[in-house]
Each structure stands twice: as structure tokens, then as C-alpha cells.
Design a protein around this nucleic acid. Structure first.
Lengths: 142, 142
DNA sequence: TGGCACACGTTATAGCATAACGCAATTGAT
DNA sequence: ATCAATTGCGTTATGCTATAACGTGTGCCA
């Protein structure tokens, strides 16, 4: 059932954007990505957004809705997030430190099932689920 | 003019904004609220945002992060969402129909505890948790 | 070799949110 | 009463986030 997780061949722009995200230790906004890629020829937001769209579609990055920013998927190589077709496992949750910006990505089957059960009971067809916990990480809560 | 519902005494602007949200059958953006209140003297986004901030603080409305829009709290009169001080029950989740825009607000203790347990295990101190399921409601999924 | 799909580049515009200033009304302790 | 602190209000200006609409180039393959 598992097609090997073929990382699709990325275009130049997609690689550049993905690189910025993998190097970052915190979420990065689209416009910050743009600024960091000006030296590589990026001039307009659309160049960034188009790459972000594709990378999201590939399941290689995530958008943090409460931040309007993006992170590389933490579950490298495992069938974490699923791409366009055969989704990996379900929803991913994020714990975001409001102080240092660090993001922990995790998955919880029980939460997933619980929300799925609610949807089933209501006849709601989920397409994408967002779970984001804002707060203070262990280090910053000290 | 309609007298506002009970709850904390609202200022005029807060009442007007809250009214717009209670009348709406779908989430409303700040700028849409602004447009709907021009006849009542609203001229600038800040008038809306300031009211929204307060209403959020009072627990009377919710912000939908994945939509950049706002809804009135569905749990009228019960101490659902908690205000500045004594919080009502925990996190609220939303199911948002991408077709008709309808939003169902619900709460699930198990999900709440589960996420709480994760946080406790990691030493993460949650401040605000967002759970939003985008998809198609029963009627629209037909 | 013509049509298609897709990435790319550019300009312009739309939509969301806050900074910084000053004024007015309220409260509440002196 | 009066002053000071607080809070809400209004305005202008600005910044950040995202997409529309147009056209170009390239590779594929029927």
C-alpha cells in the first residue's frame, strides 16, 4: 500500500523555499522567505506562495494557521503527513511556544479518532484539521 | 437600537460588533463587520478590532484562525468559554463547512484531556488551543 | 507540430492587522 | 470638588498576508 515516499523532484524555486524552512528553527512567514531569497532572484510574493502551495500539497511543509507562517514537516521520511493522494496518518498537532517560537509537531491517534467520531456522528466530511496549542515550552515556562 | 444581551456591560461599539456577529449565520471578517457598521458611524478598522479584542476577552466571541474571521460563541448563557478570569470549560472545537460556511462549535473532554496530557508530559504550558476542522457539512456533502 | 500541462515572472490589487497620536468620559481616592 | 489614572474612542498612516490577471518559456506526446 505504501508507495515509497517519493519526494517528488522539486523545482528550483520549491527547493529554495523548502531549504529556508528546513534551516529555520521556528516558523517563517511567506514574506520573510521572500526576503531571504532575494539574493537567489526572488522578487515577488507569488514566487513564494506558489512554492509553498506545492510543498504543502506534497506534505513536506505545514502551515500554522494561528501564525500565518510555515514550518518544514518534522517527520522526515516516515509517512507522516500524506501527500496529494494516499494520506499517511491523520492529523498533526502543533505546540507553539509564544516566547521562543519553537514548534513541536506531534500526532495523537486518540484525538484523531475522537474528532473523526464527532464528524461521523454529524455527517461532517473533514478535509483538513488544524490543531495548534499556543503557550510556553518547557524551557520558557521556567 | 437593540439593547444588548446580558453579560458584561458592553460599550456601544462592542454591542454593535457583537450584534453583527450574533445575526450572522457564518463567520464574519473584521473588514466585513466594518462595512456593515459604516451606517452606525464606524470608519476605521481599529474600531472593529478593539471591540473584537474585548469581546474575545469576555469569551463572547471566537476567532477562527484558519479563516481570519469571527463568530459569536454558540454556547449562549452557559459559562462555556470562559472570560478573563474563571474559565468555563476547556477548549472549544469548530467544524467549518467550506461550502456553506456554517460553523458548528463543540467541546470534547477526551480531546481536551488528551492534549492536556501531552502538554503535561512535555512540560508545555498551554495558553490557548485552536481546533478547527475544515470540510463539508452534512447538507453540503450530499 | 500542434495542443496541453506546468512552472515561472511581473504588475497590480485585495484583504487582514496594528502603530502612534490625541481627545473625551469615567472612576475613585484625596 | 479636583486631580490622576484608566479606559474607550476616533483618525491617519502604515505594515503584513495573499491572490488576480496577464504573459512567457519549456517539455511532453498524441
Amino acid at each position: 500500500m505504501n508507495a515509497p515516499i517519493v519526494t517528488p523532484a522539486l523545482t528550483k524555486n520549491q527547493s529554495l523555499v523548502f531549504d529556508v524552512l528546513t534551516r529555520a528553527d521556528a516558523p517563517v512567514s511567506a514574506y520573510t522567505i521572500l526576503d531571504r531569497l532575494r539574493d537567489h532572484g526572488f522578487r515577488a510574493p507569488l514566487q513564494v506562495y506558489r512554492a509553498l502551495d506545492k510543498l504543502t500539497e506534497f506534505g513536506m511543509i505545514h502551515r500554522l494557521e494561528s501564525l500565518n507562517a510555515f514550518v518544514a514537516c518534522a517527520h522526515r521520511n516516515s509517512e507522516c503527513c500524506g501527500g496529494g493522494s494516499g494520506h499517511g496518518h491523520g492529523t498533526v498537532a502543533f505546540a507553539i511556544c509564544d516566547s521562543c517560537g519553537h514548534v513541536s509537531e506531534f500526532h495523537d491517534d486518540k484525538v484523531d479518532h475522537r474528532l473523526g467520531d464527532w464528524a461521523k456522528a454529524k455527517g461532517f466530511k473533514p478535509a483538513k484539521t488544524t490543531i495548534e496549542i499556543r503557550g510556553l515550552c518547557h524551557g520558557c515556562a521556567a
